[in-house]
Amino acid sequence: MMRKILLTSVAVLATSASAFAADLPSRRQAPPPYLPPPPLFTWTGVYLGGQIGYEWGREPATLVSSQPSGVVGGAHIGYNYQVQQFVIGLEGDVNGTSYTGSAFSVLGPISASTKIPVDASIRGRVGYAWDRTLIYGTGGVAFADIKDSFVTPGAFASFDRTRVGWTVGGGIEYAVTNNWSVRAEYRYTDYGRFSDAVFAFPLNHHSTDNRVQAGFSYKFDTFAPPAPVLAKY
């Protein structure tokens, strides 16, 4: 009789211990790994890049009128700031060009040529972004080193001047990654009116050009807004 009581008590204690152990939290199970959220894309930041394209224009003067054209390419640097879907920024670029043109005067044996070996600009940018696609307008101050030369039998004249004008245009830019983007752009530039006296003839100029170009940029994250902080559990 005593033996049965002891066996029954041991069985009850074993069952109670198993149930209590099942209710205890497991210390062997590792917590789920923390996966940080992917960084949010923003157009905000400093960027640096390059561009290449083609430009064509007009160089009308009193005696001669040429239509120069050529390849243009260089580098740009800028800063964008995004507020919701609107993007504002400032950009500067410097280019080397093969922009040249020549013409002959119908009034006499005078030939003329025009070259712009270097140009630059400082422009504002305003755009509207659909996530990684940005459509923008741009405009500002343009600079150019304009070289004009005139040849007639027995005489030669040349002028080298730096002109300041204005430029305006627009484009579309797409962010391939959070840092790299590509763009396509059109700009019209007007360097204003100026005059020379060549072989005792007054020459009045008005230099304008158009350009289409493609480019790329790398955006640095130094001045970009920080990613949101999420609590770890």
Rank of each mutant, 00 (worst) to 15 (best):
G70W: 06
L6Y: 11
G140A: 13
Y174M: 08
R27T: 13
R28D: 14
M1W: 09
H205R: 12
G53I: 00
F86H: 00
W43N: 00
F41N: 04
T177H: 01
G215H: 03
Y188W: 15
N204T: 10
L134Y: 09
V182Q: 01
M1P: 05
A155H: 09
F201G: 02
T44Y: 05
F150T: 08
T189K: 04
R123W: 13
E91N: 06
E91A: 09
S18R: 04
Q85E: 06
L48W: 04
R161L: 10
F159L: 06
T138N: 01
G57L: 03
Y79V: 15
S158Q: 11
Q67C: 00
T152W: 01
D93E: 12
L7D: 10
T189Q: 11
F143G: 14
V46N: 05
G96D: 00
G169M: 08
N210V: 10
I52P: 04
A19I: 14
P31L: 13
V198N: 06
D119T: 10
A19N: 06
G78T: 11
A112E: 06
T167G: 15
M2A: 12
V118N: 00
D23F: 07
F86I: 11
E185C: 05
F216Y: 03
K147R: 11
G74W: 08
Q84P: 01
G137T: 05
S217G: 06
Q29H: 10
S195P: 00
T208N: 11
A19P: 02
Y136Q: 09
I146H: 02
V212M: 09
A129G: 10
I110Y: 00
V71W: 13
G165D: 11
L6H: 13
G73I: 10
A227M: 09
G101W: 05
T152N: 03
A61N: 04
P37K: 07
K147Y: 10
E55P: 07
R183Y: 12
V168L: 15
G96W: 15
T208P: 07
Y54M: 00
W130H: 02
Y218A: 02
K219E: 07
F194S: 13
I146C: 07
G137M: 13
A19K: 06
V212I: 15
V12N: 03
R58Q: 14
A30T: 03
S195A: 14
D196K: 09
P33D: 12
I116L: 00
Q84L: 12
K115I: 03
A21M: 04
F159G: 00
F20M: 11
K147H: 13
L90I: 15
A214D: 04
A11Q: 04
M2P: 00
I122P: 01
G192K: 11
A231K: 08
T62L: 07
Y128L: 12
A17V: 14
S149L: 03
T44S: 14
R125S: 10
Y128V: 10
L230G: 01
F199R: 09
V182A: 08
A155Q: 12
L48R: 01
P117H: 07
Y79M: 15
K147M: 02
A21P: 09
G140S: 08
L24M: 12
D190H: 07
I122S: 01
R28C: 05
I146P: 04
Q67R: 09
I122V: 14
Y186C: 06
F143R: 09
I172A: 14
A197T: 12
V87A: 06
I116H: 01
S113I: 01
A17C: 07
P228H: 13
I110C: 03
